[in-house]
Design a protein around this nucleic acid. Structure first.
Lengths: 145, 145
DNA sequence: GATAAAGGCTCCCGTGACGGGAAGGTCAAG
DNA sequence: CTTGACCTTCCCGTCACGGGAGCCTTTATC
């Protein structure tokens, strides 16, 4: 199978598939003319990678998950640990975004949005508002794991 | 004022401050010896940038916000548009993450996490489960604005 | 058989927003 | 006079690819 068909079957761009080979996630064969030759097994792995990526796993996490997937003697605990850590990272990210969202939504609701220059959004960013800013989005950033 | 003091006062790393100068967000003076010389005004701008960045605005959005901030004849509507678009982007991101979170949390809860190899997480990624996957995390990705 | 379009290949640069570190100049203290 | 703390510029690395150049092969058409 040539790369274009694999791309259409997996939904992954050809560029991405070549990249996955380059970083050693897959090892397709080669035709005599140099073209990559993918088997059903490669198709399967690429679909696996695509789904893992769509769940937000990093490339390195995908590599680890693939290795576990191919290890018949794996412990499901090892998989679960990776998934749980990723889940924690997602939760951190969501919290961070929700904090931003709250502050920003508040500021937006306070802004007249007309042709006058007075703007509470800029006032907040400039720090010229009285020190009762709703959420402390200044200072230390919550270092996500 | 030298860069280390500005860094400690704004909470921004010196590297970041130099970067902001390089991309034209600030224009500090120079001492005869080549050292950067920051005024209160520069400090103020950097604090503005730091707060805008902490709300998730991109550098280019920050540049636009700075320009509006320094424009006495701005319309608050222009500021509001930028903030609202960013708010929309944040909401998209949150939705995307929450979709991932839901799928992932479900899979994690289904995984025994012991030393046996059977693992519903890997089964889902491999697509070997019956086609009743909870959330459709495969196929098209919701293209965030 | 000639040609053109389509698809394959490699290689290199760009992204966003910096961080790390090298190599070297400057300045205050001891 | 030397040590050490700052400052400077410059360049590479990040993460996961995307865009495009330049070239080769296959397939379809004339």
């Amino acid at each position: 199978m040539k790369i274009a068909e694999v791309a259409s079957q997996t939904g992954l761009p050809a560029k991405t598939i070549r990249y996955y080979e380059e970083i050693g996630l897959i090892h397709p064969d080669r035709h005599a003319n140099g073209y990559r030759d993918f088997s059903e097994s490669h198709l399967h792995k690429l679909a696996f990678l695509g789904r893992a990526r769509s769940l937000g796993f990093s490339i390195e996490e995908c590599r680890a998950l693939m290795a576990l997937y191919e290890d018949r003697d794996r412990a499901s605990a090892d998989v679960k640990v990776i998934a749980q850590e990723h889940l924690g990272a997602i939760d951190s990210k969501i919290s961070e975004l929700q904090a931003m969202r709250q502050t920003l939504a508040h500021l937006v609701s306070c802004c007249a949005g007309d042709d006058r220059p007075n703007c509470p959004i800029l006032a907040d960013l400039a720090g010229t508002t009285t020190p009762m800013r709703t959420t402390s989005h200044d200072k230390e950033k919550l270092s996500a794991a």
